[in-house]
Structure formats: C-alpha cells, structure tokens
C-alpha cells in the first residue's frame, strides 16, 4: 500500500500504525508522537489503528523551540 510518511511516499506492507513504525525501523523506546490525516493518534491506539491507501502519517520527535 502506498502512504505518505512525513511528506515522503512509501510503499509498505504494514496495515496498522504500530506495524508501520516497526517496518520503518522506529525503536519502541524512541520518544515520538504520531498523527494520521491531520489527527493525533495516541501511542495506546497505534496497534489497532488501521492505515488506508494514501494515508498521510506524521511522526514527530522532540526538537529545539522558541
């Protein structure tokens, strides 16, 4: 299935958000937050969160800010 991750197109096997993070090599201990199609998806909901063709996934990490 083709989806967008942080603005880049990816062809993935994963069908859930959790599986996507695994497939893309995100370490389970890494501090990140996720959103799909502009809506926040809490860490506790990732395992059961189904992805669809063309889904827009954002994976964000802590960063410097003012």
């Amino acid at each position: 299935m083709q989806i967008l991750v942080n603005g880049e197109r990816h062809d993935v096997r994963a069908t859930t958000l959790n599986a996507l993070l695994d497939e893309m090599g995100y370490d389970a201990t890494t501090r990140i937050a996720t959103a799909v199609d502009g809506c926040f998806v809490a860490a506790t909901r990732r395992a059961g969160f189904a992805l669809h063709e063309g889904a827009q996934v954002e994976i964000l990490a802590p960063m410097q800010g003012g």
Binding site: G7, R31, E58, I59, L60, A61, P62, M63, Q64
Partner: peptide
C-alpha cells in the same frame, strides 16, 4: 524552557539526544 516537535526519520537520534539534554 520552550521546546518543539519536528519530523525525524527512523534511526535519527537528534530528537532523543535533545530530549535527554532537556
């Protein structure tokens, strides 16, 4: 201190290192 969120590729360590610093 103020902080923010930005995209980081898988395997990237910048976010984690920043969080540990803070």
């Amino acid at each position: 201190v103020t902080v923010s969120l930005r995209r980081e590729a898988a395997g990237g360590r910048a976010g984690q290192a920043f969080w540990e610093l803070i």
